[in-house]
Amino acid sequence: MKIVVCAKLAPDASDIEVRSDGSISLERAEWRIGSFDLQAIEAAVRLRDAHGGSVTALSVGPQRINHSKLRKDLLSRGPDELVLVAEDALNGADTAVTAQVLAAAVRKIGAVDLVLTGEGSADLYFQQVGLQLGELLAVPVFNAVSKIEVSDSQVRIERSLEEETEVLELPLPAVLAVTTDIHTPRLPNMKEILLAAKKPVYEWSLADLGLENTPEPRVEAVSLRAPRPVERKRILIEGSPEEAAQSLAGYLVKEGVV
């Protein structure tokens, strides 16, 4: 079984610097694998381990995603190989552009049985790309997938919806966006990290994918700012638990909430 897992490499939200005018800078942010894409990688690797075949990790984005640390980090989590489409034209790509590039890359990889994506990317978390990708590939596509069982050319999935669990059967190939609790992602061990350095990495350009021009953006980001902080009273209550509890209870009464 040939599995492709899509993972976004993005700046870490906890490294956001807020400037005094409310604008934000990501210049110093560390780039990482999206924390919700790790589960997709884990799911892909487990399916391969159970059914044989291979896992190709796929990531698209600006040049800086092509970094030895990120490559190693992806590969040490178990995929057999990595495909990167790293061009600055893809910096800040919208979901439509991303999905189109991913679709072209999946087609070029060829003979893919299953594509997995995370629940949402670390920076946008729009939970969109997987669905768009499936539709572009014209194959069955579902989100919120919390269990995957593969048999021959079929796959049986469980979806965790708001109020119900749904079990579906679909033909392969398919694209599935998995939930964050499908599996706990592994921490790579020493041997896997050493092995990662030896796995193949393919760097494809947009031209290699047959995309002569970068796909037209469909959305333009007009501004990116820190959220306006809500003013709070910021009263710090210290002292013994009894004292603190008494004084808090007092405040709650005064606020009219108890």
Binding site: K69, L187, P188, N189, M190, I193, L194, A197
Partner: peptide, 9 residues
């Protein structure tokens, strides 16, 4: 220079 770096361990 050829060192195999193993971070996070």
């Amino acid at each position: 220079a050829g060192v195999m770096l193993v971070p996070g361990i």
